[in-house]
């Protein structure tokens, strides 16, 4: 089954601008503070698997009222270590209850030599590397019995000779693994700014038919004085340049789930909901342009 057919065979996929379900406001959401305001929540199963207490209990209640998307950080899809069997079976068991339409993780390595580094570390953009990662993505997808999406990361040290090598690498993984792309347009913007390339030239290389979900986020300078490197901290509101990339994609793809990521300096829920509404206006306007284009094409 192709990745598209795999996704279509699952329960209805939410669209619109959702939020990450963070522990700082999980209790509020559980009490209904965001009911009717968010089309879905994205969670990281790494924070729930093999864990008891209030979190899983609250998540179970939230999942009764909202669609849940699953996005992890710890599979180390590009790592050299063997895949973690216990973790994969933990994830599979967790998904049996939650039934998210897919699982996603990053095109990176995060563990090495048995050491879990808890960060998204960059991979070399070579065909050999793409082949190895794609085989692991396929294996994960089979073992989780679920379609997989891979996410493009922010990188601060390119391990290839041209920035466009990264897009080619991403495409090669997508095709060899026959998986979907969780396209993080903030990461595209961060990389384009840090490494000096045109984000639209990068996006033009990506087969948009593979894009299943989007991430948008804010970012910050590593050194406020030097301002020569921005870091994908998910610690600030989304900038207009990132809004523009979101709109560019949605105009071409139509409705998708878009996640507004916020992991640092997390504001009160009400403020985050207001930021969500602002991003949603960008999304809805792009969606309207997409519909208008479809109508024009249909009439022509």
């Amino acid at each position: 089954m192709s990745f598209r057919a795999g996704i279509a065979a699952r329960a209805a996929v939410p669209t619109g601008v959702g939020l990450g379900l963070r522990s700082t406001f999980l209790a509020e959401v559980d009490r209904g503070a965001a009911d009717g305001r968010v089309p879905f929540w994205e969670i990281s199963p790494d924070n729930y698997v093999a864990r008891g207490g209030s979190r899983p209990a609250r998540l179970a209640r939230v999942a009764e009222r909202f669609p849940i998307l699953s996005h992890g950080l710890s599979l180390s899809l590009g790592g050299l270590d063997a895949l973690n069997d216990d973790f994969l079976s933990g994830l599979r068991g967790f998904f049996a209850g939650l039934q998210p339409p897919w699982h996603s993780d990053h095109l990176c390595f995060s563990a090495h030599d048995g050491k879990m580094l808890h960060d998204l570390l960059p991979l070399p953009w070579t065909t050999a590397s793409a082949r190895r990662v794609a085989a692991r993505v396929r294996e994960v997808s089979e073992r989780l019995e679920r379609p997989m999406l891979v996410e493009n990361i922010s990188y601060y040290l390119p391990l290839g000779s041209s920035p466009l090598d990264e897009a080619a690498f991403v495409v090669e993984v997508l095709e060899r693994a026959d998986c979907g792309l969780l396209l993080d347009v903030n990461n595209v913007f961060v990389n384009a700014t840090n490494h000096g390339f045109d984000p639209l030239a990068w996006l033009a290389q990506i087969p948009l038919g593979r894009v299943v979900q989007l991430h948008v986020a804010g970012h910050e300078f590593w050194d406020d004085e030097r301002q020569d490197l921005i870091i994908d901290t998910h610690g600030a509101p989304v900038r207009s340049e990132v809004d523009a990339l979101l709109a560019w994609v949605v105009e071409r793809t139509g409705a998708l789930p878009v996640l507004l990521e916020r992991d640092e300096n997390i504001p009160p829920l009400a403020e985050l909901l207001a930021e969500r509404d602002r991003v949603d206006a960008v999304y809805q306007a792009a969606l309207a342009r997409h519909a208008a284009q479809q109508a024009t094409q249909g009439a022509a």
Binding site: G78, G79, L80, F109, H112, D113, K115, L117, D119, L121, P122, L123, P124, T126, A128, S129, R132, L157, L159
Partner: peptide
């Protein structure tokens, strides 16, 4: 293979 060596070296820069 050089891509695996690049990953090893990168990891070593964080670990060692």
């Amino acid at each position: 293979m050089s891509e695996e060596a690049l990953i090893r070296a990168f990891a070593a820069s964080v670990i060692e």
